[in-house]
Amino acid sequence: MTYKLILNGKTLKGETTTEAVDAATAEKVFKQYANDNGVDGEWTYDDATKTFTVTE
């Protein structure tokens, strides 16, 4: 399945996607991606759209 991440960081905004077997796996990938890019904030997940959002 394809999962999407929306980044609403103070210095980085954008979107990315990943292929993962489940939401938990996608979340690990996205949290590492956000961490690597210096984005740390509040996370939400919408199962209907398979979209994670992180907002600083």
Rank of each mutant, 00 (worst) to 15 (best):
10 K>G: 07
39 V>L: 13
42 E>W: 09
50 K>V: 03
8 N>R: 07
35 N>C: 06
33 Y>C: 04
38 G>S: 08
12 L>Y: 11
23 A>E: 08
13 K>F: 11
22 D>Q: 04
10 K>Y: 13
41 G>E: 01
52 F>D: 00
45 Y>D: 00
23 A>I: 07
54 V>I: 09
52 F>H: 02
23 A>F: 12
8 N>S: 09
22 D>H: 05
1 M>K: 11
21 V>P: 12
39 V>T: 03
40 D>T: 07
16 T>Q: 14
26 A>Q: 01
39 V>A: 05
55 T>G: 05
41 G>F: 03
33 Y>R: 03
12 L>M: 13
33 Y>H: 06
42 E>Y: 09
56 E>Y: 09
46 D>S: 07
10 K>P: 10
4 K>V: 14
33 Y>F: 12
48 A>K: 10
22 D>A: 03
35 N>L: 14
25 T>I: 10
46 D>I: 05
54 V>R: 01
55 T>E: 11
28 K>H: 13
4 K>G: 03
11 T>I: 14
40 D>P: 04
15 E>T: 14
46 D>W: 04
3 Y>A: 00
18 T>G: 03
7 L>H: 04
14 G>M: 11
30 F>W: 02
21 V>Y: 14
31 K>D: 02
8 N>M: 11
12 L>E: 10
35 N>Q: 11
48 A>G: 12
32 Q>P: 02
14 G>S: 14
34 A>W: 03
56 E>I: 08
20 A>G: 04
37 N>Q: 11
56 E>S: 10
30 F>M: 03
24 A>C: 06
52 F>T: 00
52 F>M: 02
22 D>K: 03
42 E>N: 12
7 L>P: 01
24 A>N: 08
20 A>W: 03
3 Y>H: 03
19 E>P: 05
17 T>L: 09
43 W>I: 03
13 K>D: 05
29 V>G: 04
8 N>F: 06
18 T>D: 03
19 E>V: 12
11 T>Q: 05
6 I>N: 05
39 V>F: 15
39 V>W: 09
46 D>V: 06
24 A>K: 08
15 E>N: 04
50 K>S: 11
39 V>E: 03
49 T>W: 04
11 T>K: 11
52 F>C: 01
20 A>T: 06
15 E>S: 10
37 N>M: 10
36 D>K: 11
51 T>N: 02
47 D>I: 12
55 T>M: 07
44 T>N: 14
26 A>M: 01
48 A>M: 11
15 E>V: 08
10 K>N: 08
25 T>D: 15
8 N>C: 05
30 F>I: 01
41 G>H: 02
40 D>V: 13
53 T>N: 05
44 T>C: 05
15 E>R: 07
20 A>D: 03
1 M>C: 05
18 T>V: 11
56 E>G: 05
31 K>F: 07
18 T>C: 04
56 E>T: 05
26 A>S: 03
41 G>K: 01
11 T>R: 06
55 T>Y: 08
